[in-house]
Amino acid sequence: MHWEFELVILVFLLAAAIVALRSKDLLAAVVTLSVYSFMAALICAVMGAVDVGFTEAVVGAGITGVLFIVAIYQTERKSVD
């Protein structure tokens, strides 16, 4: 365990989560969510959960992002909050 790394990434993670929730442009929010997922994958890897990190990277940064973008493309991009 490298707790310094973990702390830094956790701070970034929290920041990414807040940015993703605050952004009014849904596309930007989804991209931030992908970044968030990637951070989560990184932190999994640091904590020794390589399998979970791998899955989180493939799924969170890949599939979920694509699905979200398709859905936003089909609906609308702007959000009021």
């Binding site: 399998d51 990190g53 791998f54 899955t55 599939i63």
Partner: peptide
């Protein structure tokens, strides 16, 4: 690391 789910998800990613 890896296995069915991760590999499957990557295959799906290539199709996507």
């Amino acid at each position: 690391p890896g296995g069915g789910f991760q590999g499957g998800a990557m295959l799906a990613a290539s199709f996507l």
